[in-house]
């Protein structure tokens, strides 16, 4: 109707468009502002500050002096650091595969048409919602060499039950691994179960018609189609396993002679930074951990093309 003056029309729409753009920009920045400022102040700047601190000696009363690489040199000569690094890697190397296998098994079994699905799901997830201090405390009690339920059960199966779970240097890490697996199976199982439920039944029907056995179906259909979830579970499990702390902190006293065989990098970081109050050295330790985690994660992201199926 108003087409009789096309020139004016385009001008106003241009203006309107420009206004709209400005308006969008204004609101866009307003809306992201709190999160952006928060992330800069609470996360991005702290990363820089931690790097800075790691080159400094920070005294009890807050003064910091530049000491170059001294914290890192100290770290590479610190037997405790190497021991805790190996503890951390060993922990992740065992806890993650065991957790992934068990949670896959649980998810596959729950993805069948059996009764009680929601009951099982509820129970398996229970460890995830308990406070870690409570979890670690009850496990510490279960592992007690004299009064513990675990040794009692082992004994009732007819084995020698004088197992010092919490003080034998060759066993302490296993105690932490058991707790680690126990508390994360349910969480990963739910992620995997969600993935399984997305797999179309048609695949199985076709395979059954072709006469493929259940086992073959599992390896040829289920596993490949589950790889996106498996990948996610693997990446997140490794990251959190490398950060293990709570359980060790609560289950092992500072006076425990086997502490060095079980302490993780994050534990040493905590101890150095907040018990011994050497925040410079603590920062150096945490930076090494972060680098390790980033490297492992990047390798996984690069390697995923080889096995993860995103169709």
């Amino acid at each position: 109707m108003e087409a009789h003056n096309p020139q004016v029309n385009t001008l106003t729409t241009k203006k309107a468009k420009l206004n709209k753009k400005k308006n969008m920009m204004f609101w866009g920045w307003i809306l992201i502002a709190p999160t952006l400022i928060g992330l800069l102040v609470l996360n991005i700047f702290p990363v820089i500050q931690t790097v800075y601190l790691s080159f400094h000696s920070v005294s009890t009363f807050g003064q910091s002096t530049f000491i170059g690489l001294e914290n890192y040199i100290k770290m590479f000569n610190d037997a405790d650091f190497w021991q805790s690094l190996s503890n951390t890697l060993l922990y992740a190397g065992i806890q993650v595969p065991v957790t992934v296998v068990l949670s896959t098994l649980a998810a596959v079994l729950l993805n069948t048409k059996i009764k009680g699905l929601s009951v099982y799901r509820t129970l398996y997830f229970l460890p995830m919602i308990a406070a870690p201090a409570a979890v670690a405390m009850v496990w510490r009690w279960l592992f007690n060499s004299q009064y513990g339920l675990i040794n009692l059960m082992i004994e009732s199966l007819g084995f020698n039950a004088d197992i010092q779970w919490l003080s034998d240097p060759s066993l302490v890490l296993w105690a932490v691994i058991i707790v680690g697996v126990w508390s994360s199976v349910g969480y990963n199982m739910i992620l995997l179960l969600a993935g399984l439920q997305e797999i179309s039944k048609d695949y199985y029907e076709a395979a059954t018609m072709d006469g493929a056995s259940k086992l073959r179906q599992f390896f040829q259909i289920t596993l490949p189609l589950l790889t996106p979830q498996l990948f996610f579970v693997l990446v997140t499990s490794i990251i959190s396993a490398l950060q293990v702390f709570d359980v060790i902190f609560v289950m092992f006293d500072v006076t425990n002679p086997s502490l060095s065989s079980v302490q993780s990098l994050v534990y040493v970081f905590f101890h150095e930074s907040y018990v011994l109050n050497d925040k410079g050295y603590g920062s150096a330790i945490i930076i090494v951990l972060v680098l390790i985690i980033m490297i492992i994660t990047v390798i996984q992201l690069l390697g995923q093309k080889k096995w993860v199926n995103y169709d």
Binding site: F143, S145, Q146, Q164, L166, S167, T255, N256, P257, S258
Partner: peptide
């Protein structure tokens, strides 16, 4: 022993 004291 010192190990037993770690538990209890």
């Amino acid at each position: 022993t010192v190990g037993q004291f770690a538990d209890n």
